[in-house]
Amino acid sequence: MLSKRLIACLDVRDGKLAKSVRFVDTKDIGDPVEKARAYYEDGLDELVFYDITASSDRRSIMLDVVEAVAKEVFIPLSVGGGVRSVADATDLRLAGAEKINVNSAAVQRPALIAECAEAIGNQNVVLSMDIRRVPASQACPSGYEVVINGGRTPMEVDGLAWALEGERLGAGELVVNAIDADGTRDGYELQLTAMIAAAVRIPVIASGGAGKPEHLKEALTIGKADAALVASMVHYGDYSVSELKRYLHSEGVKMRMSW
C-alpha cells in the first residue's frame, strides 16, 4: 500500500538556507544543496524549497539552487515562493522542480491554479495555504481563515472553503500550514488538517508546529494527513530523517523503509 511521506522544507534566502525568524541566532544554517543531498541519502521521501525572498531579482539565484539540487537528488522536488504566473512555474520546472507550490498569488487570483494545472498538469500543482484560527463568523464559518504574505495579511477567506475551491480549480495536492502552530514546536494543528483531509480527495500535507516525533505520528493518524512536513526539527540536527521514519514505522505508520 501507499506509504505516508516525510517531507523536509528548506527555506532559501539569497541561495542560502534561512533560519526561522523565531531564532535569535542569525547565522545561516548551510548550503541547501549539501543539506538536500544529505536528507536524500538518509531516506527523505520528498523535498520542498521555499524562496522566502522571492523578489524578481533573486529569482535567478533560486533557479540556480533548484538546478544544483535537481542534479543530485532523485526524489520529487517541489518549489514555491512568489510564483505568480505560468511563466514562473515553467521556469522552475525547467530548472528541475517537479511540483510547483502556489500560495499568496493564488488567493489573490484563484485562476492561477487552473492556469498552472492546464500548463503543467494537476498532479504538479500544490496549493500551499497559510491558515490561522479565528472565531467562526459568516466569512469564516469553519473557524479558520486564510492569510497571505507569510501570515501578515488576513484575507477573510474561509480555510475549508479555500481548500475545496483549490481542489476544484485543479490543485493536485494541498499543504495545510497552520500559522498559529508554525515555529512553536508544540505539534501540528490536527483539527484543521483532519477537517480538510476529510473534505477533499487530493493528498494533504500537514505543515507547521512539528517539534517531536509524536507530532508527526499524530498528523498522519489523527490529522489524516498523507504527508508530514518538517523543517527546524531536522535542520538543526535534533532528529535525523531516518530516525523519524524509523519511529513512525515502529508506531505502525506505513513508511518507505528501504532506500
Binding site: M1, L2, S3, K4, R5, D45, N122, Q123, G172, E173, R201, I202, P203, D226, A227, R256
Partner: peptide, 12 residues
C-alpha cells in the same frame, strides 16, 4: 473515500 486521486507517493 480514503483513497486519494491521483495515486501519488511511494509504493512497493
Amino acid at each position: 473515500p480514503e483513497l486519494k486521486v491521483p495515486h501519488m507517493g511511494w509504493n512497493e
